[in-house]
């Protein structure tokens, strides 16, 4: 049935978005930093996977782990060098993040040139259920996204560092009195965010042709997801991400594909307009 196929496609798309959005919401929730460079990290994750599988010859699954680690490292470096400087200067930090994103993207264009690159994944089978066709790579994407969400939730709720992050989110000074510095929280949040972006990039790599600008659209849609789902709210972000993915898929299938992006934004606008009827100054 067409609708079920569209639903599956939407879930797969939503899975990618969820991984990107979770990283974004974690960083924003804890540190109030709007990380516009997150899309670039996603792109770097995909290219790292390419470098591992096509250039270095490592298998695909190890490549995913390498991407996660590598992008986590890059993310932490960016946090320490750039984002730490803009604590308390939200607007300047946002612009700096945009500059970072543009720099990385253009550097990618120069370095990788315009040659399209592909990653050959091992999961090329398709599960056929009657007229429903479920590529295994996409099932894998959905499973990984849900699993990582579960892991993240556990981490935030149960572990020391998870609680540390929540502490910093609620009251920085009190957290510092407990021995948790903002820098430590920054490293943890950005590392996790980066790892998630890296995994997302590696997951979509076999399904797409890589290009240095591939991070822009996922970033924008991820922002939509985190604002709708609630900044810093992990469960809400996941739900919103899947929601956006499904909306995109249904609009593409039942209406016209080019309407998908603007429809998502129109829906977001409506949701936010309704939500913010009360002016921001007064409770």
């Amino acid at each position: 049935m067409e609708a079920l196929q569209a639903l599956f496609t939407g879930l797969a798309g939503g899975a990618t978005l969820a991984l990107v959005a979770l990283g974004l919401t974690l960083v924003f929730g804890v540190l109030r930093v709007v990380n516009f460079a997150h899309g670039a990290l996603f792109m770097l994750g995909a290219y790292t996977c390419y470098a591992c599988t096509e250039v270095a010859g490592i298998g695909y699954f190890p490549a995913i782990l390498v991407s996660a680690a590598a992008i986590a490292a890059v993310s932490v470096v960016l946090a320490l060098v750039v984002f730490r400087r803009f604590r308390g200067l939200e607007l300047e930090g946002a612009i700096a993040a945009v500059a970072l994103a543009v720099a990385i993207e253009n550097a990618g264009i120069i370095f990788f040139k315009a040659v399209p690159r592909q990653v050959q994944g091992p999961l090329t089978q398709v599960v056929d259920l009657g007229s429903l066709h479920l590529p295994v790579q996409r099932i894998f994407m959905i499973v990984v996204a849900v699993a990582l969400f579960g892991a993240l939730s556990l981490f935030v709720a149960r572990t020391h560092w998870g609680r540390a992050l929540r502490a910093v989110q609620q009251d920085e000074e009190a957290a510092q009195l407990q021995g948790i510095t903002v820098t430590q929280a920054m490293i943890v949040a950005f590392a996790i965010g980066g790892a998630l972006a890296g995994v997302a990039g590696a997951l979509v790599a076999p399904d797409q042709v890589l290009s240095p600008t591939m991070g822009t659209t996922p970033l924008l849609l991820a922002f939509v997801a985190i604002v709708v789902g609630g900044m810093g709210n992990i469960g809400g972000t996941l739900a919103a991400a899947f929601g956006v993915g499904i909306l995109q898929s249904f609009v593409s299938t039942y209406w016209v594909p080019q309407a998908a992006t603007w429809t998502s934004f129109a829906v977001v606008l409506l949701i936010l307009a309704v939500r913010s009827r009360r002016p921001v100054v007064y409770a």
Binding site: F28, E90, F223, V224, V227, V268
Partner: peptide, 12 residues
């Protein structure tokens, strides 16, 4: 709205 919400709305 303000801040990031405003950004997303104007971007929309």
């Amino acid at each position: 709205s303000t801040g990031a919400t405003f950004f997303v709305m104007t971007f929309s």
